[in-house]
Amino acid sequence: MKQRKIRILIAKPGLDGHDRGAKVIAKFLQESGYEVIYTGLHQTPEQIVNAAVQEAVDAVGISVLSGSHNYVFTEVMRLMAEKGLGDVVVFGGGTIPEDDIPELKAAGVKALFRPGTPLEEVLRFMKENVG
């Protein structure tokens, strides 16, 4: 059987409109051979998780620059478990203070990429954790 294509949802929750980071990641992952489903701006956790269900993705990447990361990630993780997506890798990026990271990781977020992260690091993470 041919190799499975990896599908990744990239979502931008909340009210901030800073989608440059999400777009850079989406384009980079596409150029690295991944199928990226891009949801666009202003997504609620429900919309993100339902899109992840319908698109049967292997991973969900969420970009937050509004300061609402604690709420968004916790809510996404809760809904993912509820909807049977416990096996889908969740990662994130954005202006997330170091201090908040341990708690988010404890909630199940696999990695958080802060501003200035080299793209290669994201790719290495994808290869090791998703495929």
Binding site: Q30, E31, T39, Q47, N50, A51, E55
Partner: peptide, 22 residues
């Protein structure tokens, strides 16, 4: 479309339809 070079793709049609996601 998929990229003929990387095989990857950006699937962006949902952007316009996300209000129906719930």
């Amino acid at each position: 479309p998929s990229s003929p070079f990387s095989g990857g793709a950006i699937l962006g049609d949902r952007v316009r339809m996300q209000r129906h996601a719930t």
